[in-house]
C-alpha cells in the first residue's frame, strides 16, 4: 500500500510533482502513465525517499520508507536510470545490496535465475545491453521479496520474451496480495498488465480509475466517418454541443456521437448517406486524448483520489 498526500516536488522554478494525492492498493497492479516529463520517475523517487518532498507526505505500508526496519523487504524498486556501478559484476552488485539486509547468496542466485541472467552474472555491468541492465534492475528489486514493488518503465528495452516475463511476474506478485506500481508510456501494455491506472500530466493527476473504466471511455471516444452528397445539411443537423465535425475532401469525420445516432438523424431528415463507418479508436488515442485534455477527467479524479 502506497499513500501519497499532497505530494509536491519542486526543482528550482519547475514543479515536477504538483500536490498529488493517490493510493496504490495491494493485490492489484497499478499502472502509472504520463507523457515525458510528467513526473512519474520523480514520484517514484519520492516514495523511496531518494528525493526529498518539497511538501506533502508519502508512506509505504503505513510508514515513510526510511522508517522501516528492513526497507528492501518492504519495497523493491527499479529506477529509470541504471543504478549500478559499471565496473562491478551483476552478481557482486546483488551480493552487495543483499548484504545490507543479511539476505543470503541463495536468494541472490535465485533472483539471477528469475531474471535469466545466469550466463552473464559474472560479467561487468558496463558491458550489459539495455535489456540486460533492465533485467538486473528488476532482479535487484526482487531481492528482498518485497511487499511492494515499484518499477519505473520495466519493459523499456526488453525483448518480447522479457515483456511477457514482466507481465506475468507482476500479475503473479499482485495475486499474492502484494502492491505493484509500474510506470509506462504504453497504454496498450498497461491494458494487458494493470488493473488500475493513474495518469499523470505536468505533475498533476489527470485520471485515477480502474482499467475497465478507461477502456470504456476509450470506446466511446471513437470517431465516425461519414460520406454524403448533402454535406451542408448534415453538418447543420450535427451542430449539437460536444459533437465535432471535420471535413476533409468531402469526407466528414464526426466525433462525440455514435454512428447509430448519425444514421437516425439522417434518416429523419431524408439525407442520403454513402458511408457511415465507426473508426476504432486505439487505446493510445484515448490516452493521448486524456493527457491533452485534463479538465474532462478532473471531476472523476477528485471523486476517487481525495
Amino acid at each position: 500500500m502506497i499513500e501519497a498526500v499532497g505530494l509536491t516536488k519542486r526543482f528550482g522554478q519547475r514543479t515536477a510533482v504538483d500536490d498529488v494525492s493517490f493510493t496504490v492498493r495491494p493485490g492489484l497492479v497499478t499502472g502509472f502513465l504520463g507523457p515525458n516529463g510528467a513526473g512519474k520517475s520523480t514520484t517514484m523517487r519520492l516514495i523511496t525517499g531518494l528525493d526529498r518532498a518539497s511538501a506533502g507526505t508519502v508512506t509505504v505500508n503505513g510508514k515513510p520508507y526510511a522508517e522501516h526496519r528492513a526497507p528492501l523487504r518492504e519495497v523493491g524498486v527499479l529506477l529509470d536510470a541504471k543504478a549500478v556501478h559499471t565496473g562491478r559484476s551483476a552478481r557482486n552488485h546483488l551480493l552487495a545490496l543483499a548484504a545490507t539486509h543479511g539476505i543470503g547468496r541463495k536468494r541472490v542466485d535465485a533472483v539471477i535465475g528469475m531474471a535469466g541472467l545466469e550466463s552473464v552474472a559474472r560479467q561487468r555491468v558496463g558491458n550489459f545491453s539495455l535489456g540486460m541492465g533492465q533485467r538486473l534492475g528488476i532482479a535487484a528489486a526482487l531481492l528482498g521479496d518485497p511487499a511492494t514493488l515499484i518499477l519505473d518503465e520495466p519493459v523499456n528495452g526488453l525483448d518480447p520474451e522479457g515483456v511477457i516475463w514482466v507481465r506475468n511476474l507482476v500479475r503473479h506478485i499482485a495475486s499474492q496480495g502484494k502492491t505493484v506500481f509500474l510506470s509506462s508510456h504504453l497504454m496498450s501494455e498497461m491494458a494487458l498488465t494493470a488493473d488500475h491506472i493513474i495518469v499523470l500530466g505536468r505533475g498533476r493527476i489527470i485520471a485515477d480509475a480502474p482499467v475497465s473504466d478507461i477502456l470504456a471511455q476509450a470506446k466511446g471516444a471513437g470517431a465516425v466517418r461519414v460520406r454524403t452528397p448533402d454535406i451542408a445539411r448534415l453538418t447543420g443537423l450535427l451542430g449539437e454541443p460536444g459533437v465535432v465535425v471535420t471535413n476533409e475532401e468531402n469526407v466528414l469525420e464526426v466525433s462525440g456521437i455514435t454512428a447509430a445516432h448519425i444514421g437516425e438523424l439522417a434518416a429523419h431528415a431524408g439525407i442520403v448517406l454513402h458511408e457511415l463507418t465507426p473508426i476504432a479508436s486505439s487505446l493510445e488515442d484515448a490516452y493521448l486524448a486524456l493527457t491533452q485534455d485534463d479538465v474532462e477527467y478532473r471531476s472523476t479524479d477528485e471523486g476517487s483520489a481525495a
Binding site: P71, L72, R88, H101, I103, K106, R107, A110, N168
Partner: peptide, 28 residues
C-alpha cells in the same frame, strides 16, 4: 527465467550496521 518465485530471502533478514559494513566490503 522459468520459475517466477524461488527461495525467499529469509524472515530474519533486516537492515543492520554489520550488514552495511559487509556490503561496503563487497563493493570495495
Amino acid at each position: 527465467m522459468s520459475a517466477i518465485v524461488a527461495s525467499s530471502p529469509g524472515h530474519l533478514s533486516r537492515l543492520s550496521f554489520g550488514g552495511i559494513l559487509r556490503s561496503e566490503w563487497i563493493k570495495l
